[in-house]
Amino acid sequence: MLRVPRVKPDGGGTITFFLALGAGRQMCRLATTYQTQKQALSYLQRHRTEFERIARTRLASGELEDGLVVLSML
Rank of each mutant, 00 (worst) to 15 (best):
V4P: 01
C28A: 04
K8T: 07
S72G: 09
T49D: 15
L74I: 12
L59N: 00
E63F: 09
I15M: 02
G24A: 15
I15C: 00
A40Q: 01
L41W: 03
G11T: 00
V7K: 15
S61L: 04
V69I: 12
R53H: 13
R29S: 12
T33K: 14
E50K: 13
D66E: 08
E65D: 14
R48Q: 14
T57I: 08
H47R: 15
G67C: 07
T14H: 00
A20G: 10
K38F: 01
A23Q: 14
T36G: 00
L68V: 12
R53V: 13
G11M: 06
T33Y: 02
L64M: 08
L19I: 01
S72K: 10
G67Y: 05
A55T: 08
V4H: 02
R48A: 14
A31T: 10
R6I: 09
L2R: 15
V70N: 06
M73F: 07
H47T: 06
T16R: 07
K38E: 13
D66C: 10
G11H: 01
Y43T: 01
T33V: 07
A55F: 05
K38D: 05
Q37D: 05
L21W: 04
I15G: 02
D10E: 04
T32R: 00
L30Y: 03
R6H: 13
P9M: 07
T32Q: 07
F18R: 10
T14A: 02
L41K: 12
S42Q: 09
R56W: 03
G13H: 09
L68G: 07
G22I: 12
R58C: 09
T57L: 14
L30G: 07
T16I: 09
F18W: 09
L44D: 06
F18E: 14
P5W: 02
M1W: 06
L71T: 11
R3Q: 13
L41P: 00
A55E: 06
R56S: 05
M27A: 11
T16C: 03
Q26P: 03
L64N: 03
L2Y: 06
R58Q: 08
H47Q: 04
A20T: 11
P9N: 12
A31I: 02
R58E: 09
I15W: 03
E63Y: 09
L74G: 10
L21V: 11
